[in-house]
Amino acid sequence: MNKTTLMTMLGSVLAIVLLVIVLHPFLWILLSSFKSEQALIKFPPTFFADSYSFAQFATVWERIPLLDFLKNTVIFSVGVMVVSVFFDSLAGYAFARIKFKGRKLLYTFVLILMMIPFQVMMIPLFVQIYKMGMLDTYWGLILPRAASPFGIYLMRSFFVSLPKDLEESGRVDGLNEFRIYWNIMLPLCKSAMVTLGIFLLMNNWNDLIYPLMLTSSTEMRTLSAGLAMFVGGRTIEYGATLAAATISLVPLVAVYAMAQRYFVQGIATSGLK
């Protein structure tokens, strides 16, 4: 056997090992959500159980306001996604295609904010949202995320790559600037917008410290924050906790299965520059 095939085999073995390490826990949690409480605390633990049922999901329904969590998560993350993609694409378009005074300065401002970690500004943000009376409300969750420096950066780089003089045909037809953006430019950027939308959806759906801080009542918690509080309480049954975690995973994993390309694109482009 020559050296090259040996390397290829080694690569395949490595890939299989990684694949098992990554997928095994997911199979386990999926299976375990259908196990009984006794099967879960049985010693020694086993991967399979003797019987499976939906009982844990029923318990979750009783113990955790999961439907509220789910609703809040959807309103928060989809709300942010829609508003931010719109605002980011508007700003990205202006930065990319229109010459105006202060453009360079304002864009530098955006780039600097892109590098500042959220944790640094979270306390004054909390104070600010409190003073505006928006603590524990949907507006308080959505508004601070209504524009994203990364989103502006991403949209700008897509608009910059479009051919020159696209706008001119619109101007000749007598369209105003907003119409040019909306009717001519935006349709060309569909995939960039989906990429950004998915990126924002994923980050906000999964975020913990942000919704944890800006909500205080159980009814306003998102899936991440609500689950974290319940685990912190340590009063809940094992099976119900696992079932709840599974429920929180399923929607995003389903979207990922259908639109993988878009999940990966936003991240891949952030590294290429």
Partner: peptide, 17 residues
Amino acid sequence: FIAPAILVLLIFMFIPL
């Protein structure tokens, strides 16, 4: 076009920072 995004960044990121 840039006003909404810049306002959001100003109020909810720059001022807190």
